[in-house]
Amino acid sequence: MFHWLEKNPFFFAVAVFVVIAFAGLIEIIPNFAQASRPIEGLKPYTPLEIAGRQVYIKESCNACHSQLIRPFKSETDRYGKYSLSGEYAYDRPFLWGSERTGPDLHRVGNYRTTDWHENHMKDPAAVVPGSIMPKYPWLFTKNADLDTAYAEAYTVKKVFNVPYDQPNGVPLGSREDAQKNMMEQAKGIVADMKDKDVKEAFEKGEIKEIVALIAYLNRLK
């Protein structure tokens, strides 16, 4: 019966394609509309948080850290409430990760703070003896790429209707407006930090990568 297919490569290829495409469609399509709905009150990332998220991606923090708290008591005791689908509605890409070489970070903003991250990112083992996380000193000297962060926010607003610039929501506006807002948010973080260079740079209107990254980490709640 199948022998025929092996002699007719065109139909063979069609058969292969049908067999593999079929399962994919059934698995993927039904869930699509539902899973993309944000939970009540979910705010889009501010441009500064996006800049931080881009740093997170650039350094592949997701290689060691998950952002998915599974519904087990042992996980909710360690990390907080289990994750909900609607909380990820603005995550492009998703950052669940698949290894937990380091702890989950989906709600790290609830139990770690700016100054803690500052110490930790500079030298993890000094804060958590025995830590195997790398040091990230260059985050304190390199400027965050605010243009690309703005570009991402602008793109998701335009293409995916992410609700920026709503009343009482997260403002985006023009590149200049966004710059003002990023400086404003960075100010609060820089104030909680001790690194002199970061502070000085901020006075000159520069935002270091570490500031953006902390904005993102603090937002994970």
């Binding site: 993309s36 509605a89 603005y90 995550d91 998703f94 690309t148 991402e152």
Partner: peptide
């Protein structure tokens, strides 16, 4: 993102899918 907004790095893109769908 640079093609849509005219800003930033040409290499950066965002996924067509979000969150659980992306996963």
């Amino acid at each position: 993102t640079a093609l849509v907004s005219g800003y930033g790095s040409m290499l950066k893109s965002v996924s067509l899918y979000a969150g659980t769908n992306d996963a």
